[in-house]
Design a protein around this nucleic acid. Structure first.
Lengths: 156, 156
DNA sequence: ACAGCCCTCATACTTTCGGGTGATTATACA
DNA sequence: TGTATAATCACCCGAAAGTATGAGGGCTGT
């Protein structure tokens, strides 16, 4: 019995409202009809009430139409190990500023072409820089260069 | 002037509807008032019309139904002096043992040939492993693979 | 027994990397 | 003013890395 009431709550509510409004209407009718044919007076409120009612009903009905898109985004919390560049090692290596820039992008996994694009250089220039880099770091490959630079705390 | 009309289109439409209804009402009034005080006859249709109007308005207003919920899932990566492998990330990547071995040597700056020598494999096999590795890590180059693996704490 | 994965290796091909050499320009330093 | 260094770029060539495809053997779970 209770569940029945719960289930048709909205309908019962709607019905009650209608009944109430009918009653109000009757009352107004009696009040105004005697005086004159001023029926337009309660036409306004009536329209507003039913419009609002319609809005309410629509919102109730349209509720489950909400589409929820859940996007899971994984965030890898960066290690906040305050990286302190080993300036001493950097000076000893005698890297030029440009070479250091190239090194940093290398460590990020950029290809030479990407580095060139990023620093507004030609591919050849990047190659030259990287070659000098390997010389100064005394390595043969870029992966080794990155490894060594990391060990020496030259890059993060 | 046109933009004004466009801007308040809804309001004008609503107003027009009201006017039309008023007119209809008048007409019905004349027709029925003579016969009797049967005002309740057109109360029903009136209520229905305005309720529908309200529903329509509500649907128009409640247009943005789509709701995008972005859930940011944070993954805590422990930072310790002694390297602790992130087994979770490792499992998610679904790397095979052999691939992991190759990855580790890669990170040390080994060339494919050196890796092959070290693991007693042919160069081609190492290439196969590394290719699969890049697929699983969703990278294109070995430097990127090393970078990503380091970020995920898969390798030291 | 069969599907699915891993490991191994091969061939052929493309792309990227790295070495070597040389050239120009700008800047700084002696 | 000459010299050194950094930065820029070019060309060539070989090495290394990476792609695509196929193939055979081993292990596992259904």
């Amino acid at each position: 019995m209770i569940s029945f009431f719960h289930k048709y709550k909205s309908i019962l509510l709607y019905g009650s409202c209608l009944a109430l409004l009918l009653f109000l209407l009757r009352w107004m009718e009696i009040r105004f009809l005697i005086i004159s044919h001023a029926q337009d007076i309660y036409f306004g409120p009536l329209a507003v009430v039913f419009t609002l009612l319609g809005i309410w009903v629509a919102l109730k009905i349209a509720k489950p139409k909400k589409e929820v898109v859940v996007v899971e985004k994984k965030i890898y919390i960066p290690q906040k190990k305050d990286f302190v560049r080993n300036e001493t090692a950097l000076q000893e290596l005698n890297l030029s500023p440009r070479e250091l820039e190239v090194l940093e992008l290398m460590a990020k996994g950029y290809s030479n072409a990407e580095i060139a694009e990023n620093l507004f250089l030609s591919l050849n220039t990047v190659k030259t820089h990287s070659s000098k880099l390997y010389e100064k770091l005394e390595v043969k490959r870029r992966t080794q260069a990155v490894e060594k630079a990391r060990k020496l705390n030259i890059i993060a």
